[in-house]
Design a protein around this nucleic acid. Structure first.
Lengths: 187, 187
DNA sequence: ATTTGACTAAATTAGTTTTCTGGTCAAAAC
DNA sequence: GTTTTGACCAGAAAACTAATTTAGTCAAAT
């Protein structure tokens, strides 16, 4: 019972953000959930937003770890990029916190939430970029501006996985992989 | 001075929608601007939304005409697709009514506006699809699912023209054309 | 030295009143 | 007889106000 207060707070906040979103989570609630006085939270985090930031940063790490876990060195490069990206978007669409934040951004346009989601997107692109550059260096794919390619890859995937389904039958992972392979191997 | 009342109404409404958006345009205002009794509007249009629909439908026609106007038969197919798409997005970003509607959707989420913008997007995709199918038939580009290709083309272009600029130096028309050419010619 | 929760200023929400607006229709204009 | 009109209405939205909530602080407790 020498509770790592910091950990308790983060756990409580994560739970509450996932359940109610950023705005609807109060610091009193987090304190109560964490079995901690409200003031204690402020000994670890400057304010609500910094606490949020910490949690998002953890989320990004989990996301990248998920992506890394599906990479198989004996598979073709493009297949691995596809698997990684696909896993990231799956994570995004299955993780409670992500679901809640995306919903909150759409429905209430909370500024802090928009900023953090943008940050997550930037991190994903940075991760992809690093993979793409490795692929180019190894000759697995033709040289190209890695920033543009990474950016487009993510946008294309989101379009195919999320937007497409609004008016069409969902595409299979295989179909998406083939489209992306064509895109990556060309020019 | 045998005023085509219908035309007057449409002109007034277009002006007002462009200036104030859909929600902030009142039927009284349109009537006054059109020098017409309010009731008269309702002899031509069932309600506000139908009037809006008529205007959007005109806008789409203008947009397609713009796209057609930049197509040069002696140019390569992919170049023409690029020019057409580029022109459409330019139209979109320069046309007062479009600017206002996009803004209104983002800021207030007006339902009728979202629906109409979605409609515009569908029309653009349908237009592209028809071009793509012609290109495939003529052997200018490899066979592929024309619906997916059109959908992705538009999404890619919007990402490159609008989203990219939020965090990067704008891309030149040439760069965009090259990316798209690679995408269209492959697989 | 650390933790706490009562406290406060500022923001948000809830409740109420007022104003506005899409649509109608009886009367006026043609 | 047909078309046009604007006063009118019910319901929606805005404005206003009162009441509540909340992020963050800090003197006291541990």
């Amino acid at each position: 019972m020498a509770p790592d207060r910091r950990r308790m707070i983060i756990e409580a906040a994560t739970k509450s953000f996932s359940l109610f979103g950023y705005k609807a989570t109060t610091m009193d609630q987090v304190a109560k959930l964490a079995n901690v006085g409200k003031g204690t939270i402020y000994t670890f985090f400057k304010n609500k937003e910094e606490l949020f930031e910490e949690i998002i940063s953890t989320l990004v790490k989990e996301m990248i770890a998920e992506a890394e876990s599906v990479i198989k060195p004996d598979m073709p490069f493009t297949e691995n990029v596809h698997q990684a990206l696909y896993r990231i978007l799956e994570f995004r669409s299955q993780h409670q916190l992500m679901i809640k934040l995306v919903q909150e951004e759409k429905e209430m346009g909370t500024l802090a939430v928009s900023e953090k989601l943008q940050h997550v997107e930037n991190e994903i692109i940075a991760y992809l970029k690093q993979k793409i550059e490795a692929g180019i260096a190894k000759g697995s794919i033709p040289p190209a501006d890695s920033e543009i390619v990474s950016f487009l890859l993510l946008k294309m995937y989101i379009a195919l996985v999320s937007d497409w389904e609004k008016h069409h039958e969902p595409l299979t992972s295989r179909q998406i992989a083939d489209i992306m392979k064509g895109f990556l191997l060309k020019e």
